[in-house]
Amino acid sequence: MTGTVLFDLFGVIARHQSTEGKNRLTRTAGVAGPAFWDAYWELRPPYDRGDVNGPGYWRQVADAIGACFDDRRITDLVEADIASWSAVDDTMVALVEELAATGRHMGLLSNIPEELASHYEAHHAWLKCFPVRAFSCRMGHAKPEREAYEWCQHALRTEPGRILFVDDRADNVRAAEALGMQGHLFTTPGRLRQALIQWV
């Protein structure tokens, strides 16, 4: 029986925010510095879990930093945020497509807000390689919460020990391992490929 691979999205297949993307966000907000990014990240988990939508999230950010974003600016911030997370690693996309072509059972687990999830579904056909797409905004749980991994295990219909979870964050990998999954801390496509050769 071939093992199942459960992929993280950002930092594995998709790239983290670029400096250019971050700069566009701060320019759009009209606010720069640690206060902006502290609010951006501290308020992100409920947005990722779908507890609040994009406009609601950015209003919370504005309140946290003492700013006032009108509807036009909020729309621009949502667009800039999506753009900042939109770059992918073509080598990893090719690997995913290769695995799908060989019949490898795969899933995707991502902490991602609805606006960004919808963008990826509309612009990245390779998402169809994943019959199970566990987006935090739609299942109501985010890594490293145990429930996020349990949701995936049930959706994949596979025993935890037959799942290899691939993520670039050690805390997320440890959480998967605590549930009984195997873990791979992603560093490069080449090292992942070697790990997959051994994962049968």
Rank of each mutant, 00 (worst) to 15 (best):
T4W: 00
L9S: 04
L9H: 02
F10L: 14
F10C: 14
V12Y: 00
I13M: 09
R15T: 07
R15K: 12
H16M: 10
S18P: 11
T19N: 12
G21A: 07
K22C: 08
L25Y: 02
T28P: 00
G30K: 13
P34R: 15
F36P: 05
W37N: 02
D38P: 03
D38R: 15
A39H: 01
A39N: 04
E42C: 04
R44G: 01
Y47T: 03
Y47A: 06
R49F: 13
G50A: 11
D51Q: 13
D51P: 08
V52W: 00
N53Y: 01
N53I: 00
P55E: 05
P55H: 11
Y57Q: 04
Q60F: 00
V61T: 02
A64K: 09
I65R: 02
G66C: 04
C68L: 03
F69R: 10
D70Y: 02
D70F: 02
R72N: 11
R73C: 07
I74V: 05
T75I: 12
W85C: 14
S86N: 06
A87S: 07
A87R: 12
A87D: 06
D90H: 08
D90S: 14
T91I: 04
M92P: 03
L95S: 07
L95H: 10
L95E: 08
L99G: 11
L99V: 06
L99D: 08
A100N: 07
T102L: 12
G103M: 06
R104T: 02
G107D: 05
L109S: 15
N111I: 03
I112A: 01
A117G: 14
E121N: 09
W126Y: 08
L127A: 00
L127I: 06
L127C: 03
K128V: 01
K128F: 00
K128P: 00
C129P: 01
R133A: 11
A134R: 08
R138Q: 03
M139T: 00
P144T: 14
E145F: 13
R146Q: 10
E147M: 12
E147R: 15
H154Q: 14
A155N: 06
R157A: 11
R157K: 14
T158F: 09
L164F: 00
L164W: 01
R169Y: 03
R169D: 02
D171T: 14
N172H: 14
V173T: 02
E177V: 13
M181E: 01
M181W: 00
G183H: 13
H184V: 11
L185G: 11
T187W: 05
P189M: 12
G190F: 14
L192R: 04
R193H: 08
L196H: 03
I197Q: 13
Q198G: 05
Q198P: 11
V200F: 10
